[in-house]
Structure formats: structure tokens, C-alpha cells
Design a protein around this nucleic acid. Structure first.
Lengths: 166, 166
DNA sequence: CAGACGTATTCCTAATTGGAACAGTACGCT
DNA sequence: AGCGTACTGTTCCAATTAGGAATACGTCTG
């Protein structure tokens, strides 16, 4: 998922953050910097990743790579663990719930703003989708992106229908 | 949203938890008990809710009601605050991303299990929707529930289409 | 009247969030 | 050459959230 070529020198925490901000945020959250580094430390302590000082550049940084043990553990997780149900935190739905405390026009404009925001997100995800292309090696990430795009389309349709009932 | 009749004696933390578990979880999270009580304490300190000892039963409990100040503040929040974009944590999409590390059959069965889980969720939400009926006073919560139902339908459709591409 | 279950609250610990703070590097501008 | 600004990289801190365990009390049932 991250990494691409696995023969490379690994990623810095900063780079992981950037990748998460670009892609992971669409179906998970963008982890905080603090979270990335503490997690890398912990993974490192448990032998799942290996952090190596990279002194080739002007500046010494730590680059992390997954270890064989880490990869095994990841695969074991993929095979065995429970599939949790997605969690959604939907501020617009939360506000709509209290629509009776807002003016009717206010509800409509809230939904309009939301539809625009979804369209914007969709555009960003589409850029990611295009980067993935139809490379066989990236087929699964591409499917995830397609899923996201279809979700945004459905969301817009639902909200526009809902809007008409107001 | 909670409360219904606002002339009543208010709700205990426990009751709030139950209501959240029944409805809020569909578009937000079920807050932990600890979170509910600490938040009630904080709201109380800031004058947004009023906690009154209820000694009418065999057992003394605290019942919380929103204050006038709390209601004003809630409405101000509804009118002014920024609309954040929904946050999704989607374990199935996350795993699908790593589909190349799973067997193809494993991916398919993961999606099947997920579709079943969505159907189950949908049923639970449908029960909530039926409780809301077509009472004008509950029109907004009912719309939120309808939104959720439509979302689940879209999700199933998307996943089934995706499944066919594998 | 013991045991199980629902109600009600408190407590504890870990994880997550959301930065700010700090420091080095690159790059263009004057 | 020196300056400012932006990017890269890491650490640190405080507040919030999460997830339950623990503790009671009440009620109902066999």
C-alpha cells in the first residue's frame, strides 16, 4: 500500500504522513504526526518494522521498512481478524437531526454546501484514481478509489433527493 | 433529538447512553459511559445542563436537562459553526487495499460477509425508522434515518458491483 | 433467598487528536 | 553573501476519546 517498490530504503515518518494525507484519509483518518512516530517506535520495539539511520543525505533521518516478521503478522491479521463495521461521523446528519431548530432555508443551504464539499472531495479522489491508472499491481488500491468515487456519487444523489422533501 | 417531551424530568447518564446506542451510533459513535458522565459534568459546570437529584424512586439518581443557556448555545452552534466533512473509518476498504496479500476467494468472502453485515445494520435502522413514523415533530430524525437506509442500499450495490470485477 | 439481570455511576488506562515547538535544508531574491 | 520563506523531519504536550472494569443498588424469578 505504501512503499511501492519494496526494494527501496524505506520511508521517513514525514513521508508516511504525506502518503496518509493523500490517500488513507478517504477511508480512514489522517493520523497525527505524533501518532505516526509513536506507532513507528512501537512497531520497531516489537520487531515489525526496522528503522535505519539514513546518512546518505545532508541530514540524518530514520527510514522505516517493514520486516519479514511484520509482513507475516500483517498477513495473519488479514486472514484471521474480525471484520469490524465501518464507523461514520457525519456532522451534516447530526445537524439535520436538529433541523427543527434551524430555519428551513438554513437546512437547505447546509445541504447545498455539503453537496459542494462532496464534489470537491470527489475531485481530489479522482486525481488519486488517475494516478493509480490501470496498472495490475495497483488494481486493489484502484478498486478502493472506485468504491470511494461511487460512494460520493451516491451521497450526492441521496442528499439531493432529501433536499427536495424539505 | 433526545428528550422528546421537554417538560419531563430529564435523563440519567445511563438513559442517554441507551439512546445513543439505539440511534446516534448510525451516524456518529456510541460514546463510552465515561465520556457521557464526564461531558455531563462539564456541561453542568458551564451551565449548559442542569443535573437534579431525583429521589422519587427507591434510588437516588441524577437527571439532566438542558438549560435555557444550553439551548441558546446549541442553536448558536447550529447557526454559525463550520460544517466539517464526515469522517469514515472503513476497515473493509482498508483490507481491500491490501487485497493482493489475500487470496482472491478470501477477498470475495470478506465482501460477502460485509454485505450481510450491512443488511443487518439496515434492519436495525429500519426498526428505528418505523418507530419514528410520520409524526411531523420527528420529521427531521426520520429524514436522517432515511438517509442512512439509502446509504446502506448504495453501499450494498457498490460492493456487489465491485465483487463482480474480481 | 440465591442468582441473574437491568439500572446507575465511577474509575482507570490506553489511544487518539491536534497541534506547537524546534531544527535543519533548499531556494529564490536583493 | 545574507535574508526570508517554504519544505522536510522529529519531538513534545495537553486535551479528548475510547473501552471497559468495578461497584452498587434494585427487581424479578425459580
Amino acid at each position: 500500500m505504501f512503499g511501492g517498490e519494496s526494494s527501496d530504503v524505506g520511508l521517513t515518518g514525514y513521508e508516511i504522513k504525506q502518503r496518509a494525507d493523500r490517500t488513507l484519509r478517504f477511508y480512514w483518518v489522517s493520523p497525527a504526526m505524533s501518532q505516526i512516530y509513536t506507532e513507528l517506535d512501537r512497531l520497531s520495539r516489537n520487531g515489525y518494522v526496522d528503522g535505519v539511520d539514513d546518512t546518505t543525505g545532508k541530514r540524518t533521518t530514520r527510514r522505516f521498512r517493514i520486516t519479514a516478521e511484520g509482513r507475516e503478522s500483517l498477513e495473519a491479521w488479514l486472514h484471521t481478524s474480525e471484520h469490524e463495521f465501518p464507523i461514520l461521523k457525519h456532522p451534516i446528519a447530526l445537524r439535520l437531526m436538529l433541523g427543527s431548530l434551524m430555519g428551513p432555508g438554513e437546512v437547505v443551504s447546509m445541504l447545498d454546501v455539503y453537496v459542494d464539499a462532496v464534489a470537491e472531495r470527489r475531485k481530489e479522489l479522482e486525481a488519486v484514481r488517475e494516478m493509480l491508472g490501470d496498472d495490475e499491481a495497483l488494481a486493489y488500491p484502484a478498486r478502493v478509489a472506485d468504491w470511494g468515487l461511487a460512494y460520493y456519487d451516491a451521497e450526492v444523489e441521496i442528499v439531493e433527493k432529501l433536499r427536495r422533501t424539505l
